[in-house]
């Protein structure tokens, strides 16, 4: 999968949010609040041509002390929700 371009990750009083910008996202009027781990993954994956859920799991396990099966389930869920929210393409 691939993250859509034209989203800026911003810090609002310590919270991470994605704000759509530019012509390509002119109709995306939502602000998306990411938790710390989702923001970490977004930063690592933004700009990549393609990645898989396994790539996400590897990134997560590099940075956080988490069991692989838990990371795997959470990353699959996060990827699903990114697609659902219009932030990523399969």
């Amino acid at each position: 999968m691939k993250l859509k371009s034209g989203f800026a990750l911003r810090d609002i009083c310590g919270e991470k949010v994605l704000v759509a910008e530019g012509l390509e996202n002119i109709d995306f009027s939502k602000i998306v609040n990411l938790n710390e781990t989702a923001a970490y993954l977004w930063e690592k994956l933004d700009g990549r041509d393609a990645f898989t859920v396994d790539d996400m799991v590897a990134l997560l396990c590099d940075e956080y002390d988490v069991a692989a099966d838990v990371a795997s389930a959470d990353c699959a869920e996060l990827a699903r929700r990114w697609v659902e929210a219009g932030l990523a393409m399969e």
């Binding site: 911003r10 810090d11 609002i12 919270e15 949010v17 704000v19 910008e21 530019g22 002119i26 939502k30």
Partner: peptide
Amino acid sequence: PVSAFALLLPSCSGVKWDKKLYRAQCDTTA
């Protein structure tokens, strides 16, 4: 703060298609 940011951002006149200006708007709103 996140709700407040989402609430204030559309209350200002802005040009979303101009990335530089839109970033300045987001910075000031933040």
